[in-house]
Structures are given as structure tokens and as C-alpha cells.
């Protein structure tokens, strides 16, 4: 459903002084992170940012490694914009936006070497663990990349590797399962440009008015590990550097929330 042109124009002008929900331009909506929300999944998390709601489940299976990395496990990030979440979403094969979302999150995790894939080898060249992170959008009210990114890393951090029995079958119920080796906490922070103003954590209405969006994923040490500019408009060098600074600041706060939520699950 597209937004009325008049509404769009109004919001674009109004954003200079205030946002529709009264937040400052650099303020996130309340974030909630719950881990261990599913029993059948190896790891799971549900994250809300305002009304946006994302559920991620991690499943693991035994697969064949890629020929160029015979000793490494495989990570696959996939996302589904289910029609349940918004009248804008349709069922069917993944569309551009959902492909972009999962690829941006995948890059953040992969490029920061978050998962120690070397520890996921079962039999060199033959058998490795494949880690599937499936992102499901439950409700769409903007900023899905950040919500999905937080949920994905939280789900991975709480995931356990199932036990392999002597006959080669997978036992997912055994108590002696070990934790998935996760060494980094990459956090994506997205900011948009609306009528010349940089705005973090955009709502759905704000996203519909935005000229461009920039997602920057930051690691524990403050370095960047992934970036993606989206949206039809250009950004100036100055605007990009401002967003980079914002992302560094916000990602620190969000990372400590993730750590807290993961700890709560382990206790």
C-alpha cells in the first residue's frame, strides 16, 4: 500500500522539526530482545524495535563443505517477508528487499568472522555443520535490517550444536550439546536521509519518505565490517561520515543489550 502523496509531503516537511512519534532524529524506539523463544530450534531470538517484530530461528544440519574450504562449516542467512507482517508484503519467492536484507546481515556476520567456521568441521572434505539462520518478519514498522541483525546475532549466540551419535544420526535432545562458537557481536545500525535530515531507526512511514538509507555494521573494537547504501538518492561524504559516527555510538548500546539478553538465556 503506498502512502498518500500529501501525507508524504507533510511528513517530509515536518521531519525538520519533529518526528511523527516525537523522538529526536538520533533516537531509537524501545528495543526488546528475547532469546531462547523456540524449543525445536538450535538457537532463537525475537526482537522488537517499536512495532517492528522479528523472529529468527537457527537450525543446524550436516552437509558437504564447499570444495575451496573443505575444513569449514557453512553459514546461510535467509529471510522471509511473510504476508502476515504487512499489506505491502506478498507471498511467493523472496523479493529484492528481502534478498538485500539477508545479504546485508550475512555480510556483517561473515566478514567479521563471527562464527568460528573452522570448529564446525566434522570430517574434512566430507561433513561439516551447516548453520541456517532464518529470519521471519512478524510485523513491519520500519528498520527491519537492524531488528533482524540483532535477532540473528542473538539467536546465533544462544545456539547449541546438536550431538552426533555413533551411527551418524543427529541427536538434538542430548544435554551434552555444545555452544556454537561465536566470537564477535556485529551490530547493524541504519539511518535514513529525509529531506536533508539524518534520521536513525525509521518507522515504516518514515522509510516511505526517505531519500536514502545507509546501514553500517560495527564490531566490538569499533571497526566497521559491512556497509550498504540503499534508496534512490545520493549521500554526500559528510552525511556518510556522520552516519558512521552515529552507528558507532548506537551499536555500543545495542551490543550491551544483546549481551544482557544472551546472558539471561544462559542462566
Amino acid at each position: 500500500m503506498s502512502m498518500l502523496k500529501q501525507n508524504r509531503q507533510y511528513l517530509r516537511e515536518k521531519i525538520i522539526s519533529s518526528r511523527e512519534d516525537g523522538r529526536s532524529h538520533t533516537e531509537y524506539r524501545p528495543i526488546t530482545i528475547k532469546t531462547g523463544v523456540l524449543d525445536k530450534a538450535e538457537g532463537s531470538a525475537r526482537v522488537t524495535i517499536g512495532k517492528s517484530d522479528v523472529l529468527v530461528g537457527v537450525k543446524m544440519d550436516i552437509g558437504t563443505p564447499f570444495p575451496d574450504s573443505p575444513k569449514e562449516g557453512i553459514l546461510m542467512v535467509n529471510s522471509e517477508f511473510s504476508a502476515i507482517a504487512s499489506p505491502d508484503f506478498e507471498n511467493g519467492p523472496p523479493r529484492e528487499d528481502s534478498i538485500e536484507l539477508s545479504r546485508v546481515i550475512d555480510r556483517g556476520i561473515r566478514e567479521s568472522h563471527t562464527i568460528d567456521v573452522g570448529k564446525l568441521c566434522i570430517e574434512e572434505g566430507e561433513k561439516v555443520w551447516m548453520v541456517f539462520a532464518d529470519i521471519n518478519i512478524l510485523n513491519y514498522d520500519g528498520n527491519l535490517i537492524d531488528a533482524a541483525g540483532i535477532a540473528t546475532i542473538a539467536a546465533l549466540m544462544t545456539a547449541n550444536i546438536p550431538k552426533i551419535e555413533k551411527d551418524g544420526t543427529i541427536n538434538r535432545d542430548d544435554e551434552s550439546k555444545s555452544a556454537l562458537p561465536v566470537t564477535e557481536i556485529p551490530v547493524p545500525v541504519s539511518a535514513g536521509l529525509i529531506n536533508g535530515i539524518i534520521v536513525v531507526d525509521m518507522t515504516k512511514n518514515e522509510e516511505k519518505c526517505a531519500d536514502a538509507v545507509m546501514t553500517i555494521t560495527t564490531k566490538k573494537d569499533g571497526n566497521f565490517c559491512a556497509m550498504q547504501k540503499a534508496g534512490p538518492s545520493a549521500l554526500s561524504e559528510e552525511q556518510i561520515l556522520n552516519i558512521a559516527e552515529l552507528s558507532q555510538k548506537e551499536s555500543k548500546k545495542i551490543r550491551s543489550m544483546i549481551e544482557k539478553a544472551v546472558k539471561a538465556n544462559k542462566n
Partner: peptide, 22 residues
């Protein structure tokens, strides 16, 4: 106007390196 219309990144950049890279 020298505006930037595509920017993607994967790997590792310190904030300073990123500035220089731009």
C-alpha cells in the same frame, strides 16, 4: 556534485581508514 550513489563494504575498516578510503 561529487555525491555518493553507491556504497557497500565488507571486511574490516577502522573509522580512520574508512574516512581515508572515501
Amino acid at each position: 556534485n561529487k555525491d555518493i550513489t553507491l556504497l557497500q563494504m565488507d571486511g574490516d575498516f577502522t573509522p580512520d581508514e574508512f574516512k581515508k578510503a572515501l
